[in-house]
Protein backbone atom coordinates (compact mmCIF):
# COMPACT_ATOMS: atom_id res chain seq x y z
CA UNK A 1 0.00 0.00 0.00
CA UNK A 2 1.48 3.35 -1.02
CA UNK A 3 1.74 6.41 1.21
CA UNK A 4 -1.01 8.26 -0.70
CA UNK A 5 -3.37 5.26 -0.51
CA UNK A 6 -2.79 4.97 3.23
CA UNK A 7 -3.33 8.69 3.88
CA UNK A 8 -6.59 8.93 1.93
CA UNK A 9 -7.87 5.58 3.27
CA UNK A 10 -7.32 6.83 6.84
CA UNK A 11 -8.95 10.21 6.13
CA UNK A 12 -11.91 8.45 4.55
CA UNK A 13 -12.22 6.11 7.52
CA UNK A 14 -12.44 9.17 9.79
CA UNK A 15 -14.75 11.15 7.49
CA UNK A 16 -17.39 8.48 6.91
CA UNK A 17 -18.63 8.18 10.54
CA UNK A 18 -18.46 11.96 11.00
CA UNK A 19 -20.49 12.50 7.82
CA UNK A 20 -23.22 10.26 9.20
CA UNK A 21 -23.68 12.54 12.17
CA UNK A 22 -23.46 15.85 10.29
CA UNK A 23 -26.40 17.54 8.66
CA UNK A 24 -29.05 20.21 9.08
CA UNK A 25 -29.89 18.17 12.15
CA UNK A 26 -26.78 16.84 13.95
CA UNK A 27 -27.45 13.37 15.19
CA UNK A 28 -26.85 12.49 18.80
CA UNK A 29 -27.16 8.74 19.07
CA UNK A 30 -28.60 9.00 22.56
CA UNK A 31 -31.05 11.90 22.22
CA UNK A 32 -32.08 12.22 18.56
CA UNK A 33 -35.40 10.46 17.94
CA UNK A 34 -35.20 7.62 15.38
CA UNK A 35 -31.46 8.10 15.13
CA UNK A 36 -30.84 4.51 14.02
CA UNK A 37 -33.50 4.76 11.31
CA UNK A 38 -32.18 8.08 10.01
CA UNK A 39 -28.65 6.69 9.92
CA UNK A 40 -29.58 3.40 8.26
CA UNK A 41 -32.07 4.67 5.69
CA UNK A 42 -30.94 8.24 4.94
CA UNK A 43 -27.44 9.12 6.02
CA UNK A 44 -25.65 5.82 5.38
CA UNK A 45 -26.86 5.23 1.80
CA UNK A 46 -26.09 8.87 1.03
CA UNK A 47 -22.57 8.56 2.45
CA UNK A 48 -21.93 5.27 0.64
CA UNK A 49 -23.20 6.76 -2.60
CA UNK A 50 -20.90 9.79 -2.14
CA UNK A 51 -17.98 7.41 -1.66
CA UNK A 52 -18.97 5.33 -4.70
CA UNK A 53 -19.51 8.27 -7.05
CA UNK A 54 -16.48 10.21 -5.82
CA UNK A 55 -14.32 7.11 -6.04
CA UNK A 56 -15.40 6.49 -9.62
CA UNK A 57 -14.89 10.09 -10.69
CA UNK A 58 -11.47 10.32 -8.99
CA UNK A 59 -10.23 7.13 -10.64
CA UNK A 60 -11.67 8.16 -14.01
CA UNK A 61 -9.99 11.57 -13.81
CA UNK A 62 -6.60 10.06 -12.91
CA UNK A 63 -6.84 7.48 -15.71
CA UNK A 64 -7.99 10.06 -18.26
CA UNK A 65 -5.12 12.40 -17.38
CA UNK A 66 -2.70 9.50 -17.83
CA UNK A 67 -4.28 8.31 -21.06
CA UNK A 68 -4.47 11.72 -22.68
CA UNK A 69 -1.17 12.85 -21.07
CA UNK A 70 -3.10 15.95 -20.17
CA UNK A 71 -3.27 17.39 -16.64
CA UNK A 72 -6.44 19.27 -17.55
CA UNK A 73 -8.42 16.13 -18.40
CA UNK A 74 -11.64 15.66 -16.45
CA UNK A 75 -14.67 13.48 -17.17
CA UNK A 76 -16.96 16.53 -16.86
CA UNK A 77 -14.92 19.06 -18.80
CA UNK A 78 -14.00 16.59 -21.54
CA UNK A 79 -17.55 15.56 -22.29
CA UNK A 80 -17.81 12.13 -20.64
CA UNK A 81 -20.25 13.18 -17.91
CA UNK A 82 -22.25 15.39 -20.34
CA UNK A 83 -22.34 12.37 -22.70
CA UNK A 84 -23.72 10.23 -19.89
CA UNK A 85 -26.22 12.96 -19.01
CA UNK A 86 -27.35 13.14 -22.64
CA UNK A 87 -27.89 9.37 -22.62
CA UNK A 88 -29.89 9.56 -19.41
CA UNK A 89 -31.94 12.57 -20.54
CA UNK A 90 -32.78 10.83 -23.82
CA UNK A 91 -33.96 7.85 -21.80
CA UNK A 92 -36.16 10.15 -19.68
CA UNK A 93 -37.33 12.02 -22.79
CA UNK A 94 -38.43 8.83 -24.47
CA UNK A 95 -40.39 8.03 -21.37
CA UNK A 96 -38.55 5.10 -19.86
CA UNK A 97 -39.51 4.45 -16.26
CA UNK A 98 -36.86 1.78 -15.85
CA UNK A 99 -33.86 2.74 -13.74
CA UNK A 100 -31.86 0.01 -15.42
CA UNK A 101 -32.61 1.40 -18.88
CA UNK A 102 -31.77 4.92 -17.73
CA UNK A 103 -28.47 3.68 -16.28
CA UNK A 104 -27.70 1.70 -19.43
CA UNK A 105 -28.41 4.76 -21.53
CA UNK A 106 -26.10 6.88 -19.33
CA UNK A 107 -23.35 4.26 -19.61
CA UNK A 108 -23.74 4.20 -23.39
CA UNK A 109 -23.51 8.01 -23.50
CA UNK A 110 -20.36 8.03 -21.37
CA UNK A 111 -18.73 5.23 -23.39
CA UNK A 112 -19.62 6.97 -26.66
CA UNK A 113 -18.09 10.27 -25.53
CA UNK A 114 -14.91 8.56 -24.28
CA UNK A 115 -14.60 6.55 -27.51
CA UNK A 116 -14.89 9.77 -29.54
CA UNK A 117 -12.24 11.46 -27.40
CA UNK A 118 -9.94 8.42 -27.61
CA UNK A 119 -10.27 8.35 -31.39
CA UNK A 120 -9.22 12.00 -31.56
CA UNK A 121 -6.39 11.28 -29.06
CA UNK A 122 -5.13 8.41 -31.22
CA UNK A 123 -4.76 10.64 -34.22
CA UNK A 124 -2.41 13.20 -32.75
CA UNK A 125 0.92 13.06 -34.55
CA UNK A 126 2.66 15.80 -32.61
CA UNK A 127 2.59 15.40 -28.82
CA UNK A 128 3.34 19.11 -28.42
CA UNK A 129 -0.12 19.85 -29.84
CA UNK A 130 -1.75 17.23 -27.65
CA UNK A 131 -2.83 19.20 -24.60
CA UNK A 132 -4.49 22.00 -26.58
CA UNK A 133 -6.06 19.58 -29.08
CA UNK A 134 -7.50 17.22 -26.47
CA UNK A 135 -8.74 20.06 -24.31
CA UNK A 136 -10.52 21.66 -27.24
CA UNK A 137 -11.82 18.30 -28.49
CA UNK A 138 -13.09 17.43 -25.01
CA UNK A 139 -14.77 20.79 -24.64
CA UNK A 140 -16.33 20.37 -28.10
CA UNK A 141 -17.77 16.99 -27.05
CA UNK A 142 -19.01 18.53 -23.78
CA UNK A 143 -20.61 21.44 -25.69
CA UNK A 144 -22.25 19.13 -28.21
CA UNK A 145 -23.61 16.83 -25.51
CA UNK A 146 -24.76 19.88 -23.52
CA UNK A 147 -26.50 21.38 -26.56
CA UNK A 148 -28.29 18.12 -27.36
CA UNK A 149 -29.30 17.78 -23.71
CA UNK A 150 -30.70 21.34 -23.79
CA UNK A 151 -32.57 20.48 -26.98
CA UNK A 152 -34.09 17.43 -25.30
CA UNK A 153 -35.06 19.59 -22.31
CA UNK A 154 -36.63 22.28 -24.49
CA UNK A 155 -38.65 19.60 -26.29
CA UNK A 156 -39.73 17.99 -23.00
CA UNK A 157 -43.39 16.91 -23.08
CA UNK A 158 -44.39 18.93 -20.03
CA UNK A 159 -43.09 21.45 -17.49
CA UNK A 160 -42.81 18.84 -14.76
CA UNK A 161 -40.56 16.61 -16.90
CA UNK A 162 -38.50 19.66 -17.86
CA UNK A 163 -38.10 20.72 -14.24
CA UNK A 164 -37.21 17.24 -13.04
CA UNK A 165 -34.53 16.85 -15.74
CA UNK A 166 -32.99 20.25 -14.94
CA UNK A 167 -32.88 19.60 -11.20
CA UNK A 168 -31.46 16.11 -11.73
CA UNK A 169 -28.76 17.46 -14.05
CA UNK A 170 -27.50 19.79 -11.30
CA UNK A 171 -26.20 16.75 -9.49
CA UNK A 172 -27.09 15.86 -5.92
CA UNK A 173 -27.22 13.01 -3.46
CA UNK A 174 -30.40 14.20 -1.78
CA UNK A 175 -33.02 11.51 -1.09
CA UNK A 176 -30.94 8.72 -2.58
CA UNK A 177 -31.61 5.22 -1.27
CA UNK A 178 -29.97 1.82 -1.02
CA UNK A 179 -31.47 1.05 -4.46
CA UNK A 180 -29.21 3.70 -5.99
CA UNK A 181 -26.23 2.29 -4.10
CA UNK A 182 -27.03 -1.22 -5.30
CA UNK A 183 -27.19 0.04 -8.88
CA UNK A 184 -24.09 2.26 -8.92
CA UNK A 185 -21.65 0.47 -6.61
CA UNK A 186 -21.00 -2.73 -8.60
CA UNK A 187 -20.72 -0.82 -11.89
CA UNK A 188 -18.34 1.75 -10.39
CA UNK A 189 -16.24 -0.91 -8.69
CA UNK A 190 -15.98 -2.79 -11.98
CA UNK A 191 -14.99 0.43 -13.74
CA UNK A 192 -12.29 1.25 -11.17
CA UNK A 193 -10.90 -2.27 -11.52
CA UNK A 194 -10.73 -1.91 -15.31
CA UNK A 195 -8.93 1.44 -14.99
CA UNK A 196 -6.56 -0.02 -12.39
CA UNK A 197 -5.75 -2.86 -14.78
CA UNK A 198 -4.87 -0.26 -17.43
CA UNK A 199 -2.25 1.27 -15.11
CA UNK A 200 0.86 -0.32 -16.64
CA UNK A 201 -0.15 0.70 -20.14
CA UNK A 202 -0.83 4.23 -18.90
CA UNK A 203 2.67 4.29 -17.38
CA UNK A 204 4.14 3.34 -20.76
CA UNK A 205 2.19 6.18 -22.40
CA UNK A 206 4.28 8.58 -20.30
CA UNK A 207 6.87 8.18 -23.08
CA UNK A 208 4.40 8.85 -25.90
CA UNK A 209 2.30 6.51 -27.99
CA UNK A 210 5.12 5.23 -30.22
CA UNK A 211 7.34 4.28 -27.28
CA UNK A 212 4.35 2.74 -25.48
CA UNK A 213 3.64 0.52 -28.48
CA UNK A 214 7.29 -0.49 -28.58
CA UNK A 215 6.93 -1.55 -24.94
CA UNK A 216 4.17 -3.97 -25.90
CA UNK A 217 1.11 -1.79 -25.28
CA UNK A 218 -1.81 -2.62 -27.56
CA UNK A 219 -3.43 0.78 -28.25
CA UNK A 220 -6.79 -0.71 -29.21
CA UNK A 221 -6.99 -2.84 -26.07
CA UNK A 222 -6.02 0.18 -23.96
CA UNK A 223 -8.64 2.32 -25.66
CA UNK A 224 -11.22 -0.38 -24.99
CA UNK A 225 -10.27 -0.45 -21.31
CA UNK A 226 -10.48 3.33 -21.07
CA UNK A 227 -13.88 3.47 -22.80
CA UNK A 228 -15.22 0.68 -20.57
CA UNK A 229 -13.63 1.97 -17.34
CA UNK A 230 -14.67 5.61 -17.70
CA UNK A 231 -18.05 4.58 -19.11
CA UNK A 232 -18.81 2.41 -16.09
CA UNK A 233 -17.54 4.84 -13.44
CA UNK A 234 -18.86 8.09 -14.89
CA UNK A 235 -21.99 6.66 -16.47
CA UNK A 236 -23.18 4.95 -13.28
CA UNK A 237 -22.41 8.06 -11.22
CA UNK A 238 -24.35 10.35 -13.55
CA UNK A 239 -27.23 7.88 -13.72
CA UNK A 240 -27.85 8.01 -9.97
CA UNK A 241 -26.72 11.54 -9.06
CA UNK A 242 -26.60 13.74 -12.18
CA UNK A 243 -23.49 15.68 -13.22
CA UNK A 244 -20.96 16.18 -10.44
CA UNK A 245 -18.10 17.98 -12.12
CA UNK A 246 -14.45 18.78 -11.45
CA UNK A 247 -13.80 15.85 -9.07
CA UNK A 248 -11.75 14.07 -11.72
CA UNK A 249 -9.80 17.26 -12.41
CA UNK A 250 -9.05 18.33 -8.85
CA UNK A 251 -8.31 15.02 -7.19
CA UNK A 252 -5.33 13.78 -9.28
CA UNK A 253 -3.60 17.13 -8.69
CA UNK A 254 -4.04 16.78 -4.94
CA UNK A 255 -2.81 13.18 -5.00
CA UNK A 256 0.07 13.45 -7.49
CA UNK A 257 2.55 15.19 -5.13
CA UNK A 258 2.12 12.29 -2.68
CA UNK A 259 2.98 9.65 -5.30
CA UNK A 260 5.89 8.84 -7.62
CA UNK A 261 3.81 10.55 -10.37
CA UNK A 262 3.36 7.43 -12.50
CA UNK A 263 -0.25 7.24 -13.74
CA UNK A 264 -0.64 3.74 -12.28
CA UNK A 265 0.31 5.02 -8.82
CA UNK A 266 -2.47 7.58 -9.01
CA UNK A 267 -5.58 5.54 -9.74
CA UNK A 268 -6.34 3.91 -6.37
CA UNK A 269 -5.42 6.94 -4.19
CA UNK A 270 -7.39 9.19 -6.57
CA UNK A 271 -10.41 6.93 -6.10
CA UNK A 272 -10.06 7.29 -2.32
CA UNK A 273 -9.44 11.04 -2.50
CA UNK A 274 -12.39 11.48 -4.87
CA UNK A 275 -14.59 9.59 -2.42
CA UNK A 276 -13.35 11.87 0.38
CA UNK A 277 -13.89 15.07 -1.63
CA UNK A 278 -17.46 14.21 -2.64
CA UNK A 279 -18.29 13.01 0.88
CA UNK A 280 -16.98 16.21 2.50
CA UNK A 281 -18.57 18.45 -0.16
CA UNK A 282 -21.91 16.71 0.36
CA UNK A 283 -21.66 17.24 4.12
CA UNK A 284 -20.91 20.93 3.56
CA UNK A 285 -23.95 21.18 1.26
CA UNK A 286 -26.06 19.71 4.06
CA UNK A 287 -24.81 21.89 6.89
CA UNK A 288 -24.61 25.26 5.12
CA UNK A 289 -27.34 27.50 6.58
CA UNK A 290 -29.17 28.17 3.31
CA UNK A 291 -32.91 28.24 2.66
CA UNK A 292 -32.67 25.12 0.51
CA UNK A 293 -29.83 22.64 0.40
CA UNK A 294 -27.01 23.61 -1.99
CA UNK A 295 -26.80 21.16 -4.90
CA UNK A 296 -23.62 19.07 -4.78
CA UNK A 297 -22.89 19.55 -8.49
CA UNK A 298 -23.10 23.34 -8.09
CA UNK A 299 -20.91 23.32 -4.97
CA UNK A 300 -18.17 21.33 -6.66
CA UNK A 301 -18.32 23.54 -9.75
CA UNK A 302 -17.88 26.59 -7.50
CA UNK A 303 -14.71 24.96 -6.12
CA UNK A 304 -13.59 23.39 -9.40
CA UNK A 305 -13.80 26.34 -11.78
CA UNK A 306 -11.31 28.52 -9.83
CA UNK A 307 -9.10 25.43 -9.44
CA UNK A 308 -9.13 24.96 -13.22
CA UNK A 309 -8.16 28.62 -13.67
CA UNK A 310 -5.34 28.23 -11.14
CA UNK A 311 -4.07 25.19 -13.06
CA UNK A 312 -4.14 27.10 -16.34
CA UNK A 313 -2.19 29.98 -14.80
CA UNK A 314 0.35 27.56 -13.33
CA UNK A 315 0.76 25.83 -16.69
CA UNK A 316 1.18 29.18 -18.44
CA UNK A 317 3.95 30.08 -15.99
CA UNK A 318 5.56 26.71 -16.77
CA UNK A 319 5.40 27.34 -20.51
CA UNK A 320 6.89 30.86 -20.43
Amino acid sequence: MTRATLIFAMLLAIAIPLSLLAGRVWIDLETTPNAALILAELRLPRAVLAVVIGGGLGAAGAAMQGYLRNPLADPGLFGIAPGAALGAVLAIYFGTASTVLLTGSALAGACGAMALLALIAGRTANPAHGIALFTLAGMMIASLAGALTSLAISLAPNAFAMSSIVVWLMGALTDRSWDDVTLAAPLTLAGVLVLWRAGRALDALTLGEEAARSLGVNPRALMGMMVLGTGLTVGSGVAVAGIIGFVGLIVPHLVRPLTDKRPSSLIVPSALAGALLVLVADVLCRILPLVTELRLGIALSLIGAPFFLWLLLRMRRGLT
Binding site: G66, R69, P127, D203, A204, L205, T206, L207, G208, E210, A211, S214, L215, D260, K261, R262, P263
Partner: peptide, 20 residues
Protein backbone atom coordinates in the same frame (compact mmCIF):
# COMPACT_ATOMS: atom_id res chain seq x y z
CA UNK B 1 13.02 1.21 -29.41
CA UNK B 2 14.16 4.72 -28.57
CA UNK B 3 12.03 7.28 -30.44
CA UNK B 4 13.32 10.61 -31.63
CA UNK B 5 10.90 12.44 -29.36
CA UNK B 6 12.17 12.96 -25.82
CA UNK B 7 8.60 13.24 -24.51
CA UNK B 8 8.09 12.39 -20.84
CA UNK B 9 4.54 13.42 -19.98
CA UNK B 10 4.84 13.28 -16.18
CA UNK B 11 7.64 14.52 -13.98
CA UNK B 12 8.73 11.10 -12.75
CA UNK B 13 12.13 10.42 -11.20
CA UNK B 14 14.99 9.15 -13.35
CA UNK B 15 14.74 5.77 -11.64
CA UNK B 16 11.03 5.47 -12.38
CA UNK B 17 11.65 6.53 -15.95
CA UNK B 18 14.30 3.82 -16.36
CA UNK B 19 11.98 1.26 -14.72
CA UNK B 20 9.50 1.71 -17.60
Amino acid sequence: YLPQSAEVAWDVSVRNLVSL
